[in-house]
Computed example of a mutant assay.
Amino acid sequence: MTGGRRPSRGNLELRHLRYFLAVAEELNYGRAAERLRIAQPGLSQQIRTLEEIVGTLLFDRSRRTVSLTLAGELFLVEARKTLAQADTALVAAQRAGRGEVGRIAIGYVASAAYTGILTSLVGSFRRAHPEVELQITEMEMQRQLEALAEDRLDIGFIRPPVSLPVGITSFPLLQEGVLLALPDTHALAEAESVELAALAADTFITPRHGTGVSFHRHTVKACQAAGFHPLLGPQGQDFVTIASMVAVGLGVALVPQSVRCIQLPGIVYRAVAGPAIVAELALGYRRTEPSPAARNFTQHARGFRVGPG
Rank of each mutant, 00 (worst) to 15 (best):
G303P: 13
S193K: 02
A147M: 08
I136Y: 03
T169R: 14
G274E: 03
G99P: 04
L134C: 10
A89H: 11
R64W: 08
T69E: 01
E131N: 12
N28K: 00
E51A: 10
A147C: 02
E190D: 13
A201Q: 13
P165N: 04
G42H: 08
Q235T: 11
A191L: 13
G123T: 10
V109H: 00
Q257V: 14
L58F: 07
A79S: 15
C223W: 06
G212D: 07
G303C: 15
E138T: 04
E280C: 10
G42Q: 04
A93N: 00
E133I: 15
Q142K: 13
P256M: 06
E138M: 09
R5W: 10
S62D: 00
E100R: 01
A279E: 10
D60L: 12
L254E: 04
L283Y: 02
A147R: 06
A39H: 14
A253W: 07
E195Q: 11
L145D: 12
L179G: 01
Y19K: 03
A294L: 08
V122Y: 05
V248Y: 03
M139C: 11
G3I: 13
V248C: 09
E25G: 11
L12Y: 00
Q85P: 02
L145Y: 05
P41E: 10
A39K: 13
I242Q: 05
E195L: 11
A198I: 03
I277V: 12
V54S: 04
E34I: 13
P292S: 03
F228R: 08
H300R: 10
G236Q: 07
V162C: 11
G233E: 09
G233T: 12
A191Q: 09
R287L: 11
G236R: 10
C261E: 09
A113D: 02
R61P: 03
P130D: 15
P265G: 06
A112V: 10
V66G: 04
G42Y: 08
R61G: 04
A198C: 03
L121A: 09
K81H: 14
A113C: 00
R6I: 14
R126Q: 08
H209W: 12
A276M: 05
E289I: 06
K81V: 14
A86E: 13
F297Y: 07
A273C: 01
Q144Y: 01
L164W: 11
V178K: 00
S170C: 14
A273E: 07
L74H: 00
P256F: 11
S170Q: 15
A197V: 07
L281V: 02
G99I: 06
V278H: 01
M141Q: 15
A247E: 01
G3D: 11
A112K: 05
R302L: 15
A112F: 10
